[in-house]
Nucleic acid binder design. Structure first.
Length: 333
DNA sequence: CATCAGGGCCCTG
DNA sequence: CAGGGCCCTGAT
């Protein structure tokens, strides 16, 4: 294991050099910034975004890459330039594997045409669909990595999640330096084999320490096959995921949606979501959850989760440009 | 200073 | 299937 053995030291750091490049052609329409940058997410050192460009770490098999994505096309003629940074040469078969994985993680081949039409026809969604037209439900992380992030989000405020993530990455992550950027790669499941629950707790992650241990063990011994999971239908996949310690209905939903690209009808709206959706879709302080569910599912069916995501991210994009008062009050730091 | 709730989940009864 | 407890932190 190459996780940092002395956790009082600064994190393991690697310098990578440019090793391969190719171009991807997403389905049209495509929205680059909306796909790679999610303003509703908590800020983390796992990625860097600038308009039209995006940097992150990618673990595949046993290799660790730095990735830069560049927007080279337009909404209707999309093209994404990919440059891979590595500490060794990249064979063409390897390059092909990376290409397929990136296409999956950013959901570049999905057909959104019918879904986008439905959004244009709904006055509540028209604006969001217009400004993010072609956005994907993407996730730069592996299933394991996203599961860890979900656990760090549970029952915590954003500020606390940021702290826990930083502490864990300092201890077990790898800092990648490439293309004048620095991003962190998360540890691998097996890297926590020899780390005790007490050591994790010392990083102030509380009761989540046990979940991190058990999740990592399960992934390390192959109890979860991410690639098989991608092929399952919604219910079976959800059932599989909920066997994992620390993965309940909400985390399973997030994993299904973001990492497995299973859009779905809405089943449940939490109180904090209800408040925000009421403002967003009805311009009222509080609309009954039942009604919100019915309206959205009627309009969008099994793409309802994606529709909400469009409105949600659009809201945060607008908030970023021009702070929205009522939203600021809802999102505690 | 004390108390509480937080962008869930597990466990118990 | 309902409700209490969980780590820690900032808000009150």
């Amino acid at each position: 294991m190459d996780a940092n053995p002395d956790r009082t030291m600064s994190p393991v750091s690697k310098r990578l050099r440019e090793s391969a490049s190719f171009v991807l052609h997403p389905t049209a329409p495509f929205h680059f910034d909306g796909t790679v940058c999610k303003p509703s997410h908590f800020p983390s050192p796992l990625e860097v975004w600038e308009p039209g460009r995006y940097w992150h770490a990618l673990r595949l098999k046993d290799a660790l890459y730095g990735v830069r994505l560049s927007d080279l096309g337009t909404a209707s003629k999309p093209a994404v330039g990919v440059t891979i940074f590595s500490d060794q040469k990249i064979a063409s078969a390897e390059s092909e594997l990376i290409r397929e994985e990136l296409e999956w993680r950013f959901d570049l081949n999905v057909d959104l045409r019918e879904f986008l039409r439905a959004g244009q026809n709904d006055p509540r969604f028209r604006k969001a669909f217009r400004s993010l037209r072609g956005m994907r439900a993407s996730c730069p992380y592996s299933l394991y990595e996203l599961a860890i992030i979900c656990v760090l989000l549970q029952n915590a405020t954003v500020r606390r999640t940021v702290q826990m993530t930083g502490a864990l990455l300092d201890a077990f992550g790898t800092e990648l330096r490439f293309d004048s950027k620095r991003v962190f790669a998360m540890w691998r499941p097996a890297d926590l084999d020899n780390v005790s629950e007490a050591e994790l707790r010392a990083l102030k992650i509380g009761y989540r320490a046990r979940m991190l241990k058990r999740l990592s063990q399960d992934f390390a011994r192959g109890a979860v096959d991410e690639f098989r999971l991608r092929t399952l239908d919604l219910d079976s996949a959800k059932k599989e995921l909920m066997k994992l310690y620390g993965v309940g209905p909400e985390t399973a939903r997030i994993l299904m949606y973001s990492a497995c690209h299973q859009s779905h009808p809405l089943l449940h709206i939490a109180p904090w979501q209800q408040k925000i959706y009421s403002r967003l879709f009805y311009d009222k302080p509080l609309v009954p959850a039942r009604r919100i569910l019915r309206d959205l599912n009627n309009r969008f069916g099994d793409r309802a989760s994606l529709a909400v995501d469009y409105a949600w991210e659009d809201l945060f994009w607008r908030h970023r440009r021009n702070p929205i008062d009522w939203l600021q009050k809802e999102i505690r730091l």
